[in-house]
């Protein structure tokens, strides 16, 4: 699934982890993006770099329907055009000042981002809901081995009572969204979270670079 990310959807974050009026760093393929939700609830994804002085936009802040860079407060609309340069309050920023943006879809509690314009829509989760995301310092193969199952064409692994939605970050690093049945109670969800932690330990042991305890 992950060899060619152009025109396909990558699950970058869970809806619940991105409240209105906030910005998070995220990754798609090898690129950093700033993923943000406006006060009215719309999600947008842009390159994680303010074109003024290269500051990461994911360190910025969201006011209303715009994201602002933390360095000099330059703000950008969802479409990527610059709205405001605080050092020059009277200036209407020229159209040429903009950040690259990417297509975003939000469905079943997952936020998906794509380079280009995918022909398809993001896959459905079929009665499962997101529980949490965690980063595993291992490749898909080690995670599959730890889960005892192989990812389908949509990057989904079925492992016992949980489902894992995979998104490769860098070489050797995978973002995993853990899904549970939508009717799971609190105790079951806590168990599922711990199961995912165990799976991470196993996968990282297999990868040969687990965390130091």
């Amino acid at each position: 699934m992950l060899a060619d990310t152009t025109g396909s959807w990558t699950p970058v974050a869970l809806s619940a982890d991105l409240p209105a009026g906030t910005v998070n760093p995220a990754r798609i393929a090898t690129e950093s993006i700033a993923l943000w939700r406006s006060d009215s609830g719309r999600v947008a994804a842009s390159a994680d770099r303010c074109p003024h002085r290269g500051m990461r936009l994911s360190h910025g802040f969201v006011r209303g329907e715009a994201i602002s860079c933390i360095y000099h407060g330059w703000s950008y609309a969802q479409a990527g055009n610059c709205l405001r340069i605080p050092a020059h309050p009277g200036l209407v920023p020229p159209e040429t000042i903009r950040v690259v943006t990417h297509a975003v879809e939000e469905a079943d509690g997952v936020i998906w981002v794509a380079f280009g314009t995918p022909a398809s829509i993001p896959p459905k989760l079929d009665g499962f809901v997101p529980l949490r995301s965690l980063t595993i310092l291992a490749m898909t193969a080690q995670i599959e081995a730890a889960a005892g199952a192989v990812a389908n064409s949509e990057g989904l692994i079925e492992s016992g009572t949980i489902r894992l939605l995979l998104s490769t970050q860098h070489e050797g690093e995978t973002l995993v969204h853990v899904l549970v049945k939508d009717d799971a109670d609190v105790a079951t969800r806590i168990t599922a979270s711990r199961t995912a932690e165990n799976l991470r330990r196993t996968a990282e042991d297999l990868q040969g670079k687990g965390s130091v305890q």
Partner: peptide
């Protein structure tokens, strides 16, 4: 640890006012 600027509304500024 920088200020969460979003907790304050965006100020309405006019040129020359600073």
């Amino acid at each position: 640890i920088h200020r969460l600027h979003e907790l304050k509304p965006e100020p309405q500024i006019e040129p020359g006012e600073a």
